[in-house]
Every structure is written in C-alpha cells, then in structure tokens.
Deep mutational scan, measured.
Amino acid sequence: GATAVSEWTEYKTADGKTYYYNNRTEESTWEKPQELK
C-alpha cells in the first residue's frame, strides 16, 4: 500500500514525558499509535 504521512506528531510534556497528538482527529495519547510501530 501507499505510505501515508502519519497524522501523529510526537510531543514532550514539561516533565519530559512523550505523548502523541493526531492532527486529523485531535486525539492525544500516551501510547505509541499503531501507525508509528
């Protein structure tokens, strides 16, 4: 299949934890999204 550009962006909180934000759905998660595995 075609490689889609991930909708997920990786961010870090002030205390250094990583989370992921989906630009399309406006969803955020602590877990690494399936698309990034």
Rank of each mutant, 00 (worst) to 15 (best):
G1T: 14
G1I: 13
G1A: 14
A2S: 14
A2P: 14
A2L: 14
A2K: 04
A2D: 12
A2Y: 11
T3F: 08
T3N: 14
T3Y: 05
T3Q: 15
T3V: 13
T3L: 12
A4N: 13
A4V: 13
A4P: 14
A4L: 12
A4H: 14
A4R: 00
A4K: 05
V5H: 11
V5I: 13
V5A: 14
V5K: 09
V5W: 12
V5F: 12
V5M: 12
S6G: 11
S6W: 10
S6I: 09
S6A: 11
S6D: 12
S6R: 08
S6K: 09
E7Y: 07
E7D: 12
E7T: 07
E7K: 04
E7V: 06
E7P: 07
E7A: 06
E7N: 07
E7M: 06
W8I: 02
W8V: 02
W8S: 01
W8L: 01
W8A: 01
T9H: 10
T9S: 12
T9A: 10
T9P: 00
T9V: 15
T9N: 09
T9E: 11
E10P: 06
E10Q: 07
E10S: 05
E10M: 08
Y11H: 12
Y11A: 06
Y11F: 12
Y11D: 01
K12V: 15
K12D: 03
T13P: 01
T13L: 05
T13I: 02
T13Y: 04
T13V: 02
T13R: 03
T13Q: 04
T13E: 03
T13W: 03
A14L: 10
A14F: 03
A14G: 08
A14M: 09
A14R: 05
A14K: 11
A14P: 13
A14W: 09
D15T: 06
D15F: 04
D15V: 01
D15L: 04
D15R: 00
G16W: 00
G16Y: 00
G16T: 00
G16N: 05
G16Q: 03
G16P: 00
K17L: 11
K17E: 09
K17G: 05
K17M: 07
K17H: 09
K17S: 06
K17W: 04
K17P: 01
K17T: 09
T18K: 06
T18Y: 10
T18I: 15
T18G: 02
T18E: 06
T18W: 04
Y19V: 08
Y19H: 06
Y19K: 05
Y19P: 02
Y19C: 04
Y20Q: 01
Y20L: 00
Y21F: 10
Y21L: 05
Y21G: 03
Y21M: 05
Y21Q: 05
Y21E: 05
Y21K: 09
Y21S: 03
Y21A: 02
Y21H: 08
N22R: 00
N22H: 03
N22W: 01
N22Q: 01
N22F: 01
N23E: 14
N23S: 14
N23L: 09
N23K: 10
N23A: 11
R24H: 11
R24M: 13
R24N: 12
R24L: 15
R24K: 14
R24P: 03
R24W: 13
R24Y: 14
T25E: 03
T25L: 04
T25H: 02
T25V: 01
T25F: 03
T25P: 01
E27A: 04
S28N: 07
S28M: 15
S28G: 12
S28V: 15
S28D: 04
T29F: 07
T29N: 04
T29W: 05
T29D: 04
T29A: 08
T29M: 08
W30K: 05
W30A: 08
W30G: 05
W30P: 07
W30H: 09
W30M: 09
E31G: 04
E31V: 10
E31K: 06
E31A: 05
E31L: 08
E31Y: 09
E31D: 10
K32W: 04
K32P: 06
K32H: 05
K32T: 09
K32Q: 07
K32Y: 06
K32E: 09
K32M: 13
K32V: 08
P33Q: 02
P33N: 03
P33H: 02
P33K: 01
P33R: 01
P33I: 01
Q34T: 13
Q34V: 12
Q34W: 13
Q34R: 06
Q34L: 13
Q34P: 14
Q34S: 14
Q34M: 11
Q34A: 15
Q34K: 08
E35N: 09
E35R: 01
E35M: 05
E35D: 11
E35L: 04
E35Q: 07
E35F: 06
L36F: 12
L36I: 08
L36M: 09
L36P: 04
L36R: 01
K37D: 15
K37M: 15
K37R: 11
K37V: 15
K37Y: 15
K37C: 06
